[in-house]
């Protein structure tokens, strides 16, 4: 179960996502379906963009989420940890108010915004994120 994401990524590379593989790095896993980051963005714009900016570039009251600063903090960290950070500390004025499913969608949106591809497999449980080490894609 935990490796499904990587298998999906392999399929996606074969299906034309070669840019991710062409750099010689491990291809990024496809962890979610296309509709998940879209739903995540909808939620993000409601609950997160006031501080992080709608384009994830640092809204002044929250750090950028696609920026050099983001990757200097999250490179090689566990994707599960990113999910946990969102779930247990965000939004900063109401931590604990997000449902686990909402935190998953937000994780999918942030990963998609950082070049992680969508695939066939729905991100249904945070456990899927356990083996994934975050790596900058662009």
């Amino acid at each position: 179960m935990r490796h499904i994401g990587f298998i999906s990524a392999g399929l996606l590379v074969a299906a034309g996502f070669a840019p991710f593989a062409s750099r010689g790095a491990e291809p990024p896993p496809a962890l979610f379906t296309a509709d998940q980051p879209a739903a995540g963005e909808a939620l993000y714009l409601q609950r997160c963009s006031g501080c992080h900016n709608a384009n994830l570039t640092d809204g002044g009251q929250g750090p950028g989420l696609i920026t050099d600063g983001f990757w200097s903090n999250w490179e090689q960290k566990s994707a599960r940890t990113l999910y946990g950070r969102i779930l247990s500390t965000m939004p900063s004025n109401e931590p604990g108010s997000l449902l686990p499913g909402e935190a998953l969608l937000l994780t999918a949106f942030i990963l998609k915004s950082n070049g992680y591809p969508a695939g066939e497999q729905t991100l249904e449980t945070a456990d899927t994120l356990n083996p994934v080490r975050l790596h900058r894609q662009k």
């Binding site: 909808a42 939620l43 006031g50």
Partner: peptide, 26 residues
């Protein structure tokens, strides 16, 4: 942004206004 899928419990996003949402320019 795409509205949430049918049956989703998530609220729809607030409308975009001139392509802008909250956030400060850097």
């Amino acid at each position: 942004p795409t509205p949430p899928a049918a049956g989703s419990t998530f609220a729809p996003p607030p409308p975009m206004i001139n392509g802008m949402r909250g956030g400060l320019p850097l």
